Amino acid sequence: MHFELLDKVYYGNTLMDYMISLGIFILSLLVIFIVKNVIIRKLKLIAQKTSTSIDNLIVELIEKKIVPFLYLGTFYFSMQGLKMAPAVQKVFTVSVSLLLTILIVRAVSVLLSVILEQRWASSDKNASRRNAFRSLLTGIQIVMWAIAVVMLLDNFGVNISTLVTGLGIGGIAIAIASQAVLGDLFSYFTIIFDRPFEIGDFIIVGDRMGTVEHIGMKSTRVRSLSGEQLVFRNTDLTDSRISNYKRMENRRVVFSIGVTYDTDIALLKEIPLKIKSIIESIPLTKFDRSHFFSFGNYSLTIETVYYVASSDYNVYMNIHQDINFRIMEEFKSMGVKFALPTQTLHIVPDKSSSSLLSAS
């Protein structure tokens, strides 16, 4: 009697089929419960003991994205043993495919976001670069969703060849029409990721120079020394040779001093030693060399090289001014004179004129 009841058919399936399907579903839920409350909990405890945060994010990803996928898989496989009407089967298959696609895309998107945040964005203090990372991530997510939609339409029997061809032709037309804008956009990402300069850096591009104030998707704005704002296309910057003085750790300084030709040789030998002692006594400087360099048109030239351990131009000027003051003081105490542009004219009397004057 009981076995006859189990063999009764309801909506194309026996009661035994429904019970087996229900048993598979309940057993799978039990397995998921163990995974969620035992295994994942232990993984959380292990992740909390580590110094890195990436494992915590992975465990959180498993709990929030992978576990719902397991629930969907449980429901899908428990229903496979049942016979369904064609319309119901189609609705069931479409619904499962749609939910599965959404779960996969969201899981991959979250995983990619975690990797990018941990690798670049979270460790970067530059706000514009963090925004660029997020913009890039948004673009990647849009592409992923677009691919997922096309794959879903293809699985549902929609002919996507015409759609893809139309999108390809339209994309080419848009790319040609907005070539300059897209070029600046790609140059923007090049600047952000390659970091040839950052906001606050002092750069020289051709004959233009100034401090970077803003890096945008289309253009970069630079404040010149005279006060006006210079606007560069990002493509122009990536195609140009840029001098970045903010990245300069040591500034090399070369300067020359001219003394008069009547300077005593003993004093001339002493001048490089005096200049060396002056530079070495000033903080943030590193002496390189000082030599009697050449015989000039009106002076004996002393050339000196030293380094300033700062990229700040004002620091360099203050140090160089201090050196100049001390050199003047030393030269004054030594009796050494700076050479000025002078010419000595030698007049040789004509012999014929002298003889005529003596005869007269």
Score class of each variant (00 low, 15 high):
N13M: 08
A87I: 15
V315D: 09
A175G: 06
L163K: 01
H291Q: 14
L345A: 06
I257A: 11
F33D: 12
R326K: 14
T138G: 11
F25G: 07
M84Q: 09
A339P: 13
K125R: 14
I174T: 09
S53I: 09
A175L: 07
M84N: 07
H320S: 13
I58M: 12
G171N: 09
I279E: 02
N126D: 15
E228V: 13
D207L: 07
T220D: 03
I102P: 06
E249S: 13
L230I: 15
D288Q: 12
I327D: 03
F338M: 12
L273T: 09
H346F: 08
T342Y: 10
S354G: 01
A132W: 02
N56P: 00
L163I: 15
V9F: 06
E60C: 02
T162L: 09
V231A: 05
D262A: 06
L72G: 04
I204W: 01
L72W: 04
K65P: 00
I115R: 02
I282S: 05
E117C: 04
I54F: 14
L137P: 01
I54S: 10
R129F: 13
M151Y: 08
Y188K: 00
I62N: 05
G206K: 07
T285L: 04
R289I: 13
V222Y: 05
D184F: 02
T220W: 05
Y316V: 11
D124N: 14
A85P: 01
S224H: 11
I39A: 08
S109Y: 02
T52D: 15
S277D: 13
S113N: 11
I275E: 00
F3S: 13
A121Y: 06
T220V: 07
I275D: 00
E198C: 09
P196F: 02
M16S: 14
S95M: 13
I62T: 07
D322K: 15
R119L: 14
E303N: 12
Y316A: 06
W145K: 08
F325A: 10
G183W: 01
M209G: 15
G227Q: 05
P68C: 05
L57Y: 11
N126P: 06
N155D: 10
S97L: 13
L6I: 01
I169R: 02
V38F: 12
L237M: 05
E63R: 08
D262M: 03
Q321S: 15
V38W: 11
R129E: 07
I142W: 11
V348E: 10
Q48K: 15
E117N: 14
Q179K: 15
M317T: 15
